[in-house]
Simulated assay, not measured.
Amino acid sequence: MSTVTGIWKQHRGGSRAAPRTWSPRDRLALTAGLAAPFLVALVLVPFRTSLSHTNAALILVVAVVAVAAFGSRTAGMVAALSAAAWYDFFLTRPYETFDITASADIETAVLLLAVGLIVSQLAARARRLQLLTVTDAAYLARIHRTADLVQSENSADTVVDHVRGELTDLLGLRACRFEYGTLMGRPPRLENDGSVTAGRRTWNPDTDGWPEGETELRAYGNGHYLGRFMLTPGPGPVPSLQARLVAVTLADQTGAVLDTAGPVRG
């Protein structure tokens, strides 16, 4: 229960983000943020004498929203800046310069930039919340699958094998094995709060990465140590704090079934 509460607190409070890595989608969105407003403004050039500047600005805002919805907040901000610049260059007098002589045009350009930045923030936030919901549903599905297996399966080995697979996929591990009732050596340990301790040092995987070698994740039943998963990190990014808290929950479920299964293998 404490782990589930930790996941909920993480939803509410957030955590310090890991260093940003740019995916192909992010790079494409940034390119679109630069290019889309330019292309839209270019299309509007033949109509710039008949189209009101307000309508032209609204059309460019649509382009900004599209980029922000597809990509990231950064891409939306780039699109807003690009929209304001190309609105000035193509659609205000004197044309094809970055000078604006009419005060009304200056106000429209400033409003375009401000509105573009605001809607890009909103669109990116909506996309992030949608992704978070999908991710949370996947996490909960793992917990529910394991809970169902714990209730229906008499074999502790079957549950252990299932959780090994879940942990490998959840944390992007290269390997995962389980040691029954053994405490040898002092490898780094994944703690209940999602941090990692290595000796006397506490690691924050979000900023420090995983320690080298295997990291243990212990399974307890009624407060008694019953075994541990040995996690070998994969080459991908460090799993999020939410994922690590779910991993702790899965280990707790394993400990519960080991506790009811009787003596463990030694």
Rank of each mutant, 00 (worst) to 15 (best):
N55E: 09
A83W: 09
V238L: 03
L170A: 02
T249C: 07
A68S: 02
T108C: 04
S52L: 08
Y220R: 06
A114Y: 13
L171G: 02
D259F: 15
G262N: 04
L131V: 14
A261M: 00
S15I: 01
R73A: 05
T215E: 02
L91P: 07
Q242Y: 07
T197I: 03
A156N: 03
T182Y: 14
V150E: 07
H162Q: 07
E191A: 06
L245A: 03
R128P: 00
A147S: 11
A137F: 00
E212N: 13
L42T: 11
R201N: 12
T97K: 09
E153L: 06
F89S: 04
H53N: 13
R201G: 02
S23V: 11
W210V: 03
L183C: 03
T202C: 07
L34I: 14
S2H: 12
R145I: 04
P233Q: 03
A123W: 12
D193W: 05
A141S: 07
P19T: 04
A147I: 08
A18L: 14
T202G: 00
R201E: 13
L129K: 12
M230N: 11
R127H: 06
L34G: 15
T31H: 01
L173G: 02
L28D: 09
A85R: 09
A68I: 09
S152T: 05
R27G: 10
N192A: 15
E179P: 01
G199N: 01
G262Q: 12
T21S: 09
G172W: 08
P237C: 00
A85W: 02
E153G: 04
E179N: 14
D105V: 02
V150H: 02
S195A: 10
G223E: 00
D206P: 06
R93W: 12
A80D: 12
T108N: 10
A57R: 14
L250W: 04
L183V: 12
N154I: 08
F47E: 05
L113N: 08
N192E: 14
A138T: 05
R228I: 00
T101L: 07
G194C: 07
V196D: 01
L131D: 13
N154M: 12
L91V: 02
R201T: 15
Q130K: 10
G76M: 03
T92C: 09
M77H: 15
Q130Y: 08
G194E: 03
E212Q: 07
A123Y: 10
L131W: 10
V160H: 05
A124T: 04
V246S: 04
L167R: 00
A251W: 02
V196A: 01
A141W: 09
A137I: 05
S15D: 12
C176T: 12
Q121D: 15
L60I: 02
T49E: 15
D136N: 14
V159N: 03
E166G: 01
P235W: 05
Y220A: 00
L140V: 13
H162V: 00
R200L: 14
L226E: 05
Q130I: 07
G234K: 11
T101F: 10
Q121H: 15
A79M: 08
A85V: 13
H224Y: 08
L250Y: 02
W86T: 06
S103G: 01
L39V: 13
Q242W: 12
A104K: 04
G262I: 07
D206Q: 15
L140A: 08
V110N: 03
